[in-house]
């Protein structure tokens, strides 16, 4: 499992726009780089990131080989009701990781 850092406020006011930050540990190997022996290192990147709010997708991003290692994404959502945010990263070599964080709407 890759290490992640997710920053979501524990409580938000109804209707408020709040910021979500998600950072994941990943090499994002481009597939263009030769190793010490001159062989091209095969591509190994995260292809897609998605964030769902109570099961409904509210934000998604497609990542490319030009994205730096350990991708850090910051985006916003509107607080409608209390629930769970789930974060899913999927990528090459069957990479798939999902993390969840609760949000309480007051």
């Amino acid at each position: 499992m890759a290490r992640v850092l997710i920053n979501v406020p524990r409580t938000v006011r109804r209707g408020e726009v709040f910021e979500i930050r998600a950072l994941i540990q990943h090499t994002m190997e481009t597939g263009y780089r030769p190793d010490a022996g001159g062989e091209v290192v095969p591509r190994d990147i995260i292809r897609r990131f998605a964030c769902a709010y109570n099961g409904e997708e509210v934000f998604a991003a497609e990542l490319s080989p030009a994205v730096a290692a350990n991708p850090f994404l910051v985006f916003t959502a509107v607080a409608a009701e209390s629930g769970t945010l789930s974060f899913t990263w999927t990528g090459d070599n069957g990479f798939s990781q999902t993390e969840t964080r609760p949000v309480a709407v007051e």
Binding site: V4, L5, R21, L23, Q25, N70
Partner: peptide, 13 residues
């Protein structure tokens, strides 16, 4: 910001 500092991933590890 410890939630933006990628070094914190290694601290967790």
């Amino acid at each position: 910001d410890d939630t933006a500092n990628p070094g914190m991933l290694w601290v967790q590890e």
